[in-house]
Design a binder for these strands. Structure first.
Length: 414
RNA sequence: GCGGGUGUAGCUCAGGUGGUUAGAGCGCCAGAUUGUGGAUCUGGAUGUCGUGGGUUCAAGUCCCAUCACUCGCCCCA
């Protein structure tokens, strides 16, 4: 193995993988457009403040996972660990609040300084959807339905489960949080070490602990549903009713808690068993407080992000490269004509491979290796008669086609 | 950040208890086949044995460190 290694947790997207990624992005973009979402792109780095302020000082992302650096001008910058904060910043700095509601789709690399695992990288890629300016449950329903439809079109929907929970509005959440903290503090001695830390940082997370002792304690803990106020309860009921009316099955998971501070009401994750510990394939929720927290006008929002690497790993179907037409000059005398023919076919939008050297046999081998659908063979005879030999590389059948009819003839191989 | 596993050719992997020139299959290259690919046959090339140090007369093999990957925890896409 070479000593030239890529940076830990980063990955080259070689043609086969790149094709899979592109398939995910293309399908997601197309479906998102059907729902009226427009593609945007924000910078892959922002002032560190943008993330610090929105993700919460206690979140793992901010405390230990940010790729931050000082640039030559002394600015504190951070490679984006997620997309939502940047989109919210764009909304504010672009003065887009005048045009609400806004529906955005974007995709690109994200960066987190984590210990890599399968499906967990330091540079990874996400597709992302954000709906801004819609306070009604209809927004939550649309965004989840959009995610479900993308997963369906990708052909992974049957291996994925939609888990759903509500975090309530601020009032409900703070009431519950207080009660929960009291409860766990009363049983502090029975909490795992991890959960003692969570008690300070994000007590709701204890509900999702995998520790045996914690789980026993959690089983006795007060229930969130008992602390939801009427507005929160109604809101969530409307979301679930909407999903049911669309035939989108979901599993209520009262322990589903988002890691980031800005979430409220609907929280959801599409998860799979097929990817080991990194089973979350698409996750999101409502973030009504985010834009205001950044200093913009109070703007409700809801969205999700999905990991392209994780989706690509689930993709069952191969994503083959386009099959080219191979143009093959028999001898050196035909090379110039082959070059001109190749160029004219390419200008007509046909994918053409022209080998760079070798005799007929070598070039045929290359055509085969490139998975070419047909070979257009130009020899001395053919040239003299204004035709080319066209060989179907699947059937092995060969026929002569006049040069001026070639372009139309090749259409059958697309 | 914590704990376990792995690292030999481009890929998948063999290489009992240390012992001379490190192997296989697939792939790659060349030839049989200088106007016809796939199949077959023949031949060929490719390794700082992840890296660095140590033990030893001798290390792919044992020890330590380090890097990367991997499984789990933490957390998350």
């Amino acid at each position: 193995m070479s000593s030239l290694q890529p940076v830990r947790g980063t990955h080259d997207l070689l043609p086969e993988t790149a094709r899979r990624h592109r398939a995910v992005i293309d399908i997601a973009r197309r479906v998102a457009e059907c729902y009226g979402y427009q593609e945007i792109a924000t910078p892959i780095f922002e002032f560190s403040e943008v993330f610090k302020r929105t993700l919460g000082d206690t979140s793992d992302i901010v405390t230990k996972e940010m790729y931050s650096f000082t640039d030559r001008g002394g600015e504190q910058l951070t490679l984006r660990p997620e997309a939502t904060a940047g989109v919210a910043r764009a909304l504010i700095s672009g003065g887009l609040s005048q045009q609400l509601p806004l529906k955005f789709f974007c995709h690109g690399p994200m960066f987190r300084y984590e210990r890599p695992q399968k499906g967990r990288l330091r540079q990874f890629h996400q597709i992302d959807v954000e709906l801004l300016g819609v306070a009604q449950p209809l927004g939550d329903i649309e965004v989840i339905a959009l995610g479900a439809q993308i997963l369906r079109e990708l052909g992974v929907y049957d291996r994925v489960v939609l888990e759903l929970n509500t975090l309530g509005d601020t009032e409900s959440r703070q009431a519950y949080r207080a009660v929960l903290v009291d409860y766990f503090k009363a049983h502090r001695d029975r909490l795992s070490e991890d959960s003692l830390g969570r008690l300070e940082r994000n007590p709701l997370r204890i509900l999702d602990s995998k520790d045996e002792g914690d789980r026993r304690l959690v089983a006795e803990a007060p229930l969130f549903t008992d602390f939801l106020n009427d507005a929160s309860r109604d809101f969530f009921a409307a979301v679930t009713a909407g999903l049911e009316s669309l035939g989108i099955p979901y599993k209520l998971n009262p322990r589903l808690v988002r890691g980031l501070d800005y979430y409220c009401h609907t929280a959801f994750e599409f998860t799979t068993e097929a990817l080991g510990a990194q089973g979350t394939v698409m996750a999101g929720g409502r973030y009504d407080g985010l834009v205001a927290m950044m200093g913009g006008p109070a703007t409700p929002g809801i969205g999700w992000a999905a990991g392209i690497e994780r989706l690509a790993m689930l993709l069952a179907a191969e994503t083959p490269a386009i099959r080219p037409i191979a143009v093959i000059p028999v001898g050196a005398a035909e090379e110039a004509a082959a070059l001109r023919l190749t160029e004219s076919l390419r200008r007509a939008g046909i994918t053409v491979d022209l080998g760079y050297g070798g005799n007929l046999g070598k070039r045929m081998k290359r055509a085969n290796r490139m998975n070419a659908s047909a070979a257009v063979i130009l020899g001395e005879d053919e040239q003299a008669r204004g035709v080319a030999a066209v060989r179907d590389l699947d059937s092995g059948e060969q026929e002569e086609v006049p040069l001026n009819a070639l372009r139309d003839h090749l259409a059958r191989y697309r």
